[in-house]
Design a protein around this nucleic acid. Structure first.
Length: 584
RNA sequence: CGGGGCGUAGCGCAGCUUGGUAGCGCAUCUGCUUUGGGAGCAGAGGGUCGCAUGUUCAAAUCAUGUCGCCCCGACCA
């Protein structure tokens, strides 16, 4: 295409709203435009890249045997009531009503819709397995949209759902998707890793996230340098400290004035933090039909003093409490339940609340804990003798240096962007929506499901995070809006330049290359800057030596330039583009 | 939702403390000169200062409220 005909508006300055590279460069390259917070429009070049990514996703999904369909983002509330998610999904579900007052949601995912389709269309084991997917706008009314495309309220997601006869079939479907995802993100040019993940409110057991490494990611990943183990910080198992063989000493109350924190009490008593017990008190809500919240119960959770509590593990341990239905208890509640003020909560004599504890606590001896009286702690508190918990399970938040649960080597930590996730759902939705098939013994069986998501627009942001420099974006060839840009210096004024540029342009187009000809009546500096900021991976400059048929060839990713004849330049571009097509 | 910051021309900002003719740079338009890394000169257009109420002879400026945006925390593709 001719650049003079394309709508392109690059920005010289960084818009005030942008903080991180992908947001800054996508705006400055004129690829995206904000409509309102968390909602973006894609302009000509930006949309071309979105479609490139979608195309890669589509090709690999189709190659894996999945089929593309299209459903509406408008989903009736009834389906959500059937699955039970209307009440638990929380304020992130973007709800709306029609003129009759009927309720709908804009789909944040589509498990219900796909299960609904399958339950009415699949009756026999002969129709299984199936994997169907769509690429569609999704809606999540985020508490805090952020970082441009990284966390938006409207985004493009590829969501796929697999339907199998049994668990073994699901395992196979899952591995097929895992392989397809690996290819997709490789073709997008991302540095990424699949990591074990929490399955969150969608439900199910086994799950992995595909994390693209990046400084501005919002996920913490713990990975082992010695083996293949990798997990998100919420999910990573933390091995218990070895049980103590110390003898139990008699429990004793001691005065500890003003020591409201673990650090303060440990220092005051001269104990290591490992010898203390950290208490955290939560209130759990029920959501009434009218949308109000009522406190259902209080929960006290205990971990070793030097540990951090993993909220995700706690919520899962309590039977999958939705994130918005649990929060730290306020001071007033603390007083009512513990008979004390914050900072002196402990397990001994605690009542009127559920008590859960981390799994390493029963093995530890003679800990220091709050005594439920202001300025007082107990020392030599022992599990079993002085207190017990209703639930004993791993509640520890993993951190760098913790032992790898597979091989024991110390774990490393990295930040990353979650660009995809794969789940084994099992029968959660088929049970709720009664999606069954008849097997060869004429028995009705529940369909076993998996679901698989890719954030297409987030992937676009992740690519820019990994591929940019001080001058702008450096698109990998496979997702670039155009393969090559011809910077025609003095196109309007110089007949040789025009002739040579048009010649190269036509030859490349004939060869199937996506080529952009900068035929604008602009100064050369403007053309070079625009070529750099928009990140077109290959550049041919036609200028000074046009009359003798010589042009300059340059990669966006490299500093070197090379003078070539026009035919050699065309051949180089065609060869470079061919490497991308071959990878598919 | 809690905490902090910001709303003045398409974009980036100054002006506000101490109330008195709304400004600068970029972008846009016209003309001339320029043309291998975001040109120079001359000129032109464009803003109910987020909105509402209040104080005042007078409000971009002070007060109250409200809406929007951005950043930090708890959640997710």
């Amino acid at each position: 295409m001719r650049l003079s005909k394309i709508h392109l508006n690059t920005l010289r300055e960084v818009p005030g709203e942008a903080e991180i590279p992908s947001h800054i460069w996508l705006l400055r390259a004129g690829m995206i435009r904000k409509t309102v917070s968390g909602v973006y429009s894609f302009m000509t070049l930006g949309w071309r890249t979105v479609r490139k990514i979608e195309q890669i996703v589509r090709e690999e999904m189709d190659a894996s045997g999945a089929q593309e369909i299209s459903t509406s983002p408008v989903q009736p509330a009834e389906l959500w009531h059937e699955s039970g998610r209307w009440g638990v999904y929380g304020p992130e579900l973007w709800r709306l009503k029609d003129r009759h007052g009927r309720e709908f949601a804009l789909g944040p995912t589509a498990e219900e819709v796909f299960t609904d389709i399958v339950r009415s269309e699949i009756d026999s084991y002969r129709q299984l397995p199936r994997n169907i997917y769509q690429i569609q706008l999704k809606y999540r009314d985020e508490a805090r949209p952020r970082y441009g495309l990284m966390r938006s309220r409207e985004f493009i997601m590829k969501d796929a759902y697999s339907f199998d006869r049994d668990r073994a079939g699901l395992d196979e479907s899952y591995l097929t998707m895992r392989a397809a995802y690996t290819k997709i993100f490789e073709r997008c040019g991302l540095d990424f890793r699949p990591v074990a993940a929490d399955s969150g409110p969608i439900g199910g057991k086994d799950s992995e996230e595909f994390i693209a490494f990046g400084e501005y990611g919002e996920s913490d990943v713990l990975y082992c340098g010695a083996c293949e183990y990798a997990a998100t910080s919420e999910q990573a198992e933390v091995p218990d400290a070895p049980a103590s063989d110390e003898a139990e000493r008699p429990i004793e109350a001691v005065l500890t004035p003003g020591t409201k924190t673990i650090d303060a009490v440990a220092e005051f008593l001269g104990l290591p933090r490992e010898q203390t017990l950290k208490a955290l008190l939560f209130q759990i809500y029920d959501e009434a039909e009218d949308g109000t919240y009522i406190i259902r119960e209080y929960v006290a959770a205990f971990v070793r003093g030097d540990r951090e509590l993993n909220m995700t593990k706690l919520r899962n341990a309590l039977g999958g409490i939705a994130e918005h239905l649990i929060e730290f208890a306020d001071e007033a509640a603390m007083g009512a339940v513990t008979g004390s003020v914050g900072g002196f909560t402990g397990p001994v004599g605690l009542h009127d609340c559920r008590i859960v504890t981390d799994s390493e606590i029963p093995g530890l001896r003679n800990l220091c804990a709050g005594a439920l009286r202001e300025d007082t702690h107990y020392i030599n508190v022992n599990y079993g003798r002085d207190w017990t918990a209703e639930l004993v399970t791993d509640l520890k938040l993993s951190k760098a240096g913790d032992a790898c649960p597979e091989c024991g080597a110390p774990l490393n930590i990295a930040r990353g962007i979650e660009v995809g996730q794969i789940f084994k759902l099992g029968t959660k939705y088929s049970e709720a929506l009664e999606a069954v098939y008849t097997d060869e013994n004429q028995q009705e069986q529940l369909i076993v499901m998996g679901c698989y998501g890719i954030g297409v627009t987030r992937t676009m942001a992740a690519i820019v995070e990994q591929h940019h420099d001080d001058d702008g974006i450096i698109w990998p060839l496979a997702v670039a809006p155009f393969h090559v840009i011809i910077c025609a210096v003095k196109y309007a004024a110089d007949e040789d330049v025009r002739r040579v540029s048009d010649d190269i342009y036509e030859k490349l187009r004939a060869a199937g290359v996506e080529v952009l000809l900068d035929d604008r009546d602009e100064r050369p500096g403007v053309k070079f800057k625009d070529a750099d900021v928009t990140g077109i991976p290959l550049r041919i400059t036609v200028g000074k030596r046009a009359a003798e048929g010589v042009v300059e060839y340059k990669l966006r990713s490299a500093a070197e330039r090379e003078d070539l004849t026009t035919d050699d330049a065309v051949a180089r571009v065609v060869a470079a583009v061919a490497t991308v097509s071959l990878r598919a």
